[in-house]
């Protein structure tokens, strides 16, 4: 049974014709080509598919596309301001909070959800909030640092210098 779903994705209206059984993550990846949202498991535990629906973090692999009708969806592709990374994305980069990058979109989306609910999280709170996001590369250490730094910048405060020293950065591609 095909259904047409209309929703807003990253601020733009989107329409897709899907089956009842189509998941939101499939609509995003396959119908809209937004492949930044990843699928890392089939039991709704890894968190690689976390997006925001109406401003809240949810697992896009555990929501039917038809359930997103009329909703406002934000994916990793909609987080940066044009070419300028969001402070949370910048903090992930500055703290080397990603390696293979596969869990990263879900991590960033969860991090933003955390900061919305708790603008000044402690290390312990960050670690506990990441209960639904698995990373196999980083040991979480730098992700935790990044989220604290990202939250600090989002509050308008100046973060302490990252443990890796000042950024010997390279231009954004």
């Amino acid at each position: 049974m095909q259904k047409t779903v209309s929703l807003t994705v990253n601020g733009k209206p989107a329409t897709a014709t899907v089956e009842g059984r189509t998941l939101l993550v499939q609509l995003l990846r396959e119908n809209l080509g937004l492949t930044g949202t990843h699928v890392g498991c089939d039991t709704s535990q890894c968190g690689a598919c976390v997006v925001h629906v109406d401003g809240e973090a949810i697992k896009a692999c555990t929501l039917l596309a038809v359930q997103a009708e009329g909703r406002n969806v934000l994916t990793i592709e909609g987080v940066a301001d044009g070419d300028t990374l969001h402070p949370m994305q910048e903090a992930f980069r500055n703290n080397h909070a990603l390696q293979c990058g596969f869990c990263t979109p879900g991590m960033v989306m969860s991090a933003l959800d955390l900061v919305k609910n708790n603008p000044k999280p402690t290390e312990k709170e960050v670690r506990e909030y990441l209960e639904g996001n698995l990373c196999r590369c980083t040991g979480y250490h730098n992700i935790v640092l990044a989220i604290i730094e990202g939250a600090t910048v989002m509050r308008g405060e100046t973060p302490p210098v990252a443990p890796h020293g000042p950024a010997h950065g390279v231009a954004a591609e």
């Binding site: 492949t35 930044g36 994916t75 990793i76 992930f92 980069r93 596969f102 950024a167 390279v170």
Partner: peptide, 22 residues
């Protein structure tokens, strides 16, 4: 010897990585 920030991060952080399933 310098902690140069990673060049690959921009694409991963903006959902523009290209994994096989993408």
């Amino acid at each position: 010897g310098a902690s140069v920030r990673r060049r690959e991060d921009y694409r991963f952080l903006t959902g523009q990585g290209t994994y096989t399933d993408d």
